[in-house]
Simulated scan of single mutants.
Amino acid sequence: MAKALQNILFFTSLSLIASTVVGQELHKHFELKEANGIDKIELKVSTKAGKSFLNAVDAVEPLLILGASENDVAASSFRIEKLHNTQKVDAELTCKSHMGLNFTESVANSFFSSSDQVHDIWQINLSENQAFDLNLNYLMGDANVDLSRLAVERLKIKSASADVKLSYKDAIMNRVAMDTFFVKVNFGNIEVKDLNYALAKEIIAEVGFGAISIDCGSDWKMNSRVTASVGAGNLNILLPPKEIPVIIRLNNSPLCNIKMAENFEKIGHNTFGNQAYIDNPDESMEFLLDVGMGSIAFKNR
């Protein structure tokens, strides 16, 4: 097997003022130039605090990361590795005051921090002309992820105690079929809008003590499977229209709370289906749910 070319680079990037978000000047922290022969970028982003924004741009450069303070450039680290036709980028974004922040402290801060706390700001611009695998990790703070106009083959989002909102604001579907859509929350909240635009075949949700809300959207284009596990938190699902066949299979305990949508009938042991599924079980959206002490609520549109 041919050895892959590996280039590990740590950047103390530019201090050029590039843009503004929520009234703050943003400075360029990292830029990935156009890469010839690269089919896909595997991007891993980790933030410790503050506000984070991710969206598509019409640009030649595949990736641009901006931050609120040019003095914090050295606190972040960026690693690049090229493997065959894939470019891997690992970006750990933090300001100097949050360099040692860990999960336990993030949970405490989410309960006791004041509302006027100064936040870090991160803006991540992705080219709409590039295919991506995205691995997004948020320790605390807020994140807004807009996947409109992007080509995302795999998506993974994890929240420790952060509030994350994922949407398709331009109402434009993913430019490729997504292999896996994965969201996980510990103490935070993840809100997914218009999941149908992801074109995801496999959807996985894991809830610890926090909450995940999923809006399946007003249309569904493919047979998909949603696998979810809920510990002591909440999973709220806004179902697709009643014309879409849906089957729900539950593995629940006596300590959990399940609220089923009104038009679902019990068709087997811990198995429920809507009328569209009863009429046409071959073309369906399937939910496989495992819940402990938490709650799951299904709601019709």
Results as ranks from 00 to 15, higher is better:
Gln117Ile: 15
Asn144Gly: 07
Val89Ser: 11
Ser76Ala: 12
Asn102Ser: 08
Ser113Tyr: 09
Leu134His: 06
Cys95Gly: 13
Asn186Phe: 09
Met140Tyr: 09
Val118Lys: 14
Ala91Asn: 08
Ala177Val: 06
Gly100Val: 03
Glu81Gly: 09
Thr94Gly: 11
Ala74Gln: 15
Ser161Lys: 09
Asp116Arg: 06
Ser77Val: 15
Thr104Lys: 10
Ala108Glu: 12
Ser97Val: 08
Ala171His: 00
Lys193Ile: 02
Phe111Glu: 14
Phe112Pro: 04
Ile190Cys: 04
Asp163Pro: 02
Ser159Val: 01
Asp133Val: 07
Lys88Ala: 11
Lys193Phe: 02
Asn144Phe: 02
Phe111Asn: 14
Glu128Cys: 01
Ala177Tyr: 03
Asn144Asp: 03
Val192Met: 13
Leu136Asp: 01
Leu139Lys: 08
Ser148Asp: 00
Ser77Phe: 14
Asn174Phe: 00
Asp90Ser: 12
Asp170Tyr: 01
Ala177Asn: 12
Glu105Phe: 04
Ser148Gln: 03
Val89Asn: 11
Ala162Gly: 04
Ser127Asn: 06
Ala177Lys: 13
Ser113Val: 11
Ala143Val: 01
Ala91Pro: 10
Asp194His: 07
Asp142Ser: 12
Lys169Gln: 00
Ser148Ile: 00
Ala151His: 00
Asn144Ala: 10
Lys96Pro: 10
Asn174Val: 00
Gln123Ser: 05
Val185Trp: 07
His84Gln: 14
Ala75Tyr: 14
Ala131Ser: 10
Val118Asn: 13
Ile190Gln: 00
Val192Tyr: 03
Val192Lys: 01
Phe78Met: 08
Phe181Asn: 11
Glu92Trp: 06
Ser115His: 11
Asn85Arg: 10
Leu147Gly: 02
Phe132Asn: 05
Asn186Trp: 06
Asp120Asn: 15
Asp142His: 12
Gln123Pro: 03
Phe182Met: 05
Arg154Ala: 02
Phe112Trp: 11
Val183Asp: 10
Phe103Tyr: 12
His119Arg: 11
